[in-house]
Amino acid sequence: MVNQMIHVNSLTYKYIQGPAIFRDFNLDIERGQAVAVLGPSGCGKTTLLYLLAGLRTPTSGSIYIDGERITRPRPHTGLILQEYGLLPWATVQQNASLGQQIRKFYGPDGTHSPSEPEEKIDVDFWMERLKLPPIKDKYPSQISGGQRQRTAIARTLSLNPDLLLMDEPFGSLDAPTRENLQELTLKLWIEQQLTLVIVTHTIEEAALLGEKILLLKQPPNENPEIIDNPEITQPDFRNGKSYLELCKQLRARMDIS
């Protein structure tokens, strides 16, 4: 039980109108795992992420994270979206410290922020780590998409999450920036011992960032289809044979749906 980070138990979720996205869906993710959620548009991958984040409530069934049932956003879960997550009126520095500001605003109340007050939030460390100091006084509209995502990552990781949820975080970036940030994500995942759930619609990204790849199909999703990808931490995996084979396999399995 200790090693289980995410436990999705008989989840059913439907929007007010339309069919169920998930029906009696079960999923377990171990602590420290990196899981890529792959599927076509409308398959419910973002919905799943929002459910895990506590931003949506299951129609029935339950979701446990770190042994606790999720009913609202959890202080130790970090979420990074594709775009528009930064305050347009705040500088990079101010955006990166937003989480810290919010925690100060509430104090250690246990719901909006962790109840242990001694936890250290080191925004400056994360600013440095993500190479943000040169642009710290710029506004989001003045920096590149990659820099914006770095800011979002700094903001999220400064709150010391143990679970990081990412919703197509690199979808709007150009190829070199995307590759760069994918590498960085892998590095941070290992370094911070995070459990990582990343939603993506590209096969290559799923293959690069998912130790386990969860394949979602046209709803309703009932049985999770999981593909193992144990080699992602191998050096130069991106250029190896097994990576290409995995992509081929994923492509084939996605076409079947």
């Binding site: 956003p73 990074i80 979206l81 305050l87 937003l98 989480g99 919010i102 909006h112 999220t156």
Partner: peptide, 8 residues
């Protein structure tokens, strides 16, 4: 959503 996820 993202500010909400920071605990707001």
């Amino acid at each position: 959503t993202s500010v909400h996820s920071l605990g707001a």
